[in-house]
């Protein structure tokens, strides 16, 4: 289980996280919503130890990331997958090489497998995300939606326990957004993954979330289910989900 307690993070003179408390329930999809630039991705990167907090702790199964040395952190990260906003596919590798990368480099060591076996595994995983006949293409030849799906295939190939999505539907057309949302939901139910989704796409939130958290001014100001979110009277949350330009949320904050 992932627990975030009293997390503070400042970049230069900007306080981004200001005492975040959050617990991620096992086997559920937790969505973190908030304005652009409010620190959602920063929070996500703290969960996998890509950022170190100024204050506060992130614990995985009651072990704090801060107490882990590099080897322990690397071992812990084998339980995670992360879908980056732009996919973060490796340009120099083909799509199939990208997809099986977490297997070939499992635990940070290079493992030798039969090429045919790896290609077959990549093909099967790509099929899971609805992609066919793209194995030998380079990431630069894929569209934005295809890149995200290929990155998603890479994220699930090694059966992780947790999968973190950083704005999975940003920049995609509505149809492709729905495809990605379905995939997130399906992976959760079929593979039993625990998912954390960072987004400000409210349609996506309604579709995929078991639990919604809103980050505002560096703190979690709401936590609950989608129906609870829709009925909540918090003016910040109401303004955000109803897309109003007037209210307590200040433009450019």
């Amino acid at each position: 289980m992932i627990e975030v307690k009293g997390l503070y993070k400042r970049f230069h003179d900007k306080e981004v996280l200001n005492g975040v408390d959050l617990s991620i329930e096992e086997g559920k999809i937790t969505t973190i919503i908030g304005q652009s630039g409010c620190g959602k991705s920063v929070l996500l990167k703290h969960i996998v130890g890509l950022h170190r907090p100024d204050k506060g702790t992130v614990t995985i199964d009651d072990v704090s990331l801060a107490d882990m040395d590099d080897d322990a952190l690397r071992a812990c990260r084998t339980q995670f997958s992360y879908l980056f906003q732009g996919g973060a596919l490796f340009d120099s590798l083909s799509v199939w090489e990208n997809v099986v990368f977490p297997l070939v480099w499992a635990g940070g060591h290079h493992h030798h497998y039969e090429k045919d076996m790896l290609q077959e595994k990549a093909r099967q995983t790509l099929e899971l995300v609805g992609m066919h006949h793209v194995e030998n293409m380079k990431p630069s030849e894929l569209s934005g939606g295809m890149k995200k799906r290929a990155a998603l295939a890479r994220a699930i190939v090694h059966n992780p326990r947790y999968i973190l999505y950083d704005e999975p539907t940003t920049g995609l057309d509505p149809v492709m957004s729905a495809v990605i949302d379905d995939l997130i939901r399906r992976l959760n139910t079929e593979l039993g993954l625990t998912s954390v989704v960072v987004t400000h796409d409210m349609q996506s939130v309604s579709h995929v979330s078991d639990q919604v958290c809103m980050l505002y001014d560096g703190r979690i100001v709401f936590k609950g289910s989608v129906p609870e979110m829709n009925q909540n009277s918090n003016p910040i949350l109401k303004q955000f989900i109803k897309r109003k330009n007037k209210g307590p949320i200040l433009f450019g904050r």
Partner: peptide, 22 residues
């Protein structure tokens, strides 16, 4: 540099691969 700004180095770290080694 391109790998850094497109988060490919972060992706390596999350996949438990030491970017210095790779």
């Amino acid at each position: 540099g391109t790998m850094r700004i497109s988060e490919q180095i972060d992706a390596l770290e999350i996949m438990s691969v030491n970017p210095h080694n790779y």
